[in-house]
Amino acid sequence: MTRIPRIAIVGGGPAGLTLARILHVSGIQAAVFERDADPDERPQGGTLDLHEGSGLLAMERAGLTAEITAVARYDDQGTRLLNKAGELLFEDLDEDGNRPEVDRTELRAVLLASLPDGAVRWGCTVREAFETSDGAWHLRFDHGVEGPFDLVVGADGTWSRIRPLLSPYAPQYSGLTFVEFGLDDVDRRHSALAKLVGHGKMSVEADGKAIIAQRNGNAHIRGYAIFRVPTDWVEKRFDLSTPSAIREALKRQFHGFAKDFIDLIGASNDHFAVRPIYALPVGHCWTHRRGLTLLGDAAHVMSPFGGDGVNNAMLDAAELARLLVERERWTEAVSEFETLMFARTVESAHGAAEAAATQLSHDGEALALEMFRSHLAEASRSEY
C-alpha cells in the first residue's frame, strides 16, 4: 500500500464496527460516526445466527472468536413450524449446528470493546457528504464539518445518507409489515410459552398472516406478527395510543388461531414496534466513484427471510478490510471490493426476494414446510 487512506465509516452497526475492528488490528485507524447518542440509546434488535464463511469468518479475522463464543448460544439453533391449530408440522433441534445465535446487543458490545477509545463518535448524524476540489471528502454534522477523508464508507443502513451519491435506487416496500413484540423472563413467568417457542425459532402461518417468535438471551422472546398489507395499514387499523390497545388489536388479528398463539401476544411487554420491510433491487450496483463505497444494508438491503443480511454485511467489512491491507493502491482495493460484493450478494438477495414474495401466500404453510425440510436435507448432506 503506497499510502494509508484517511477513512470515515458512517454507521456503528455490525458492518461499520467490524470494518473498524479489522482495520485496527491491521494498523489502520478509521473514524466511526454513529447517530446514536450512546451505545444504550435504543434496542439493537433481536437475535441473529452467525454463519461459517461470513459472520464467523469476519469475527475470526477480527481476532474476536473467543469473545463471540463466550456470548453465543449454540443451544438455540432449533426450528419449529406449527399450523394455526397449534399442531407441530416440523421440528429440528439442530443441537450440532454451527450457526450460533448471538443477540445483536451482545455483538455490538463485543465489537465496541475491541476498539480504541474515541474510535466511535457518538451522536453524529450525517447531514451531507461533499467533495472538495482537491478530491477529498467531508462530512457535515449538526456540530460542524469533519474531514478531510480519502474514503467514506456508508455503513448506515437501509436509508443511507451516502447511497444517493453512488446510486439513484431507493429501497422499495416488500408488501410485508412486521409488528414486533417481546416477552420477558419467559422460563420463570411463562413456561408453557417458552416450551411453545422452544430453543430457537417458532413459526406459524395461515390466513395471510404469520407469527415468528425467537428465543433471545436472558430468557427473552422476541416475536413478530407479520402481515401482507399496505405500508399504512397498521396505522389505520390499530389503535396505537397505548401498549394494551396494540396488544388487543394484535390478538383480534389472530382470532381463530390456537389459544397458545393468542397467549403469546397477550403475555407481551409494553414495547412494540411497527417495521415495514424494504429491499433494494436484486443485483443492485453502482458505478465506482473514488472515495466512496457502501457496506451491508446500505449496499444491498433485503428481506430478513433469507437470514443472510448481517452475515453479508460482516463479510463485506472483512473483505473490504482485507483488500485495503493487501492491495498496493487503496483506490483499486475499493473498486475490486465492489465488483466482488456485487456478484457475491446476488444469490442471497434473490433468495430473500423470493421468500418475501411467497410469504403469506395461499401455499405459504406448505412452502415453509418444504423449505425447512430442504434445509435439513442439505445440512445432512453436508456432513458427509
Rank of each mutant, 00 (worst) to 15 (best):
A20W: 01
I22G: 00
S26F: 05
E34L: 07
R42M: 04
T47F: 07
D49Q: 12
H51T: 03
E52V: 08
G53P: 05
G55L: 08
L56M: 11
A70N: 05
V71R: 14
K84L: 03
R108P: 02
A113L: 08
S114W: 07
T125S: 14
R127E: 15
R140K: 15
E146C: 11
I162E: 09
L166A: 02
S167A: 14
P171G: 01
Q172V: 13
S174K: 00
F178W: 08
D184Y: 06
V197I: 09
G198F: 15
P230T: 04
T231F: 06
D239F: 14
D239V: 11
Q253T: 07
F254L: 12
A258I: 05
F261G: 11
L280C: 07
P281W: 06
V282D: 04
G283A: 13
R290G: 11
L295E: 06
G296E: 00
S303Y: 02
P304G: 08
G309R: 01
L320I: 05
A321N: 05
L324F: 01
R329Y: 14
F342L: 04
A343F: 02
A343C: 10
T345S: 12
E347L: 09
H350W: 08
A353N: 03
E354F: 10
A366N: 10
E378D: 12
R381E: 13
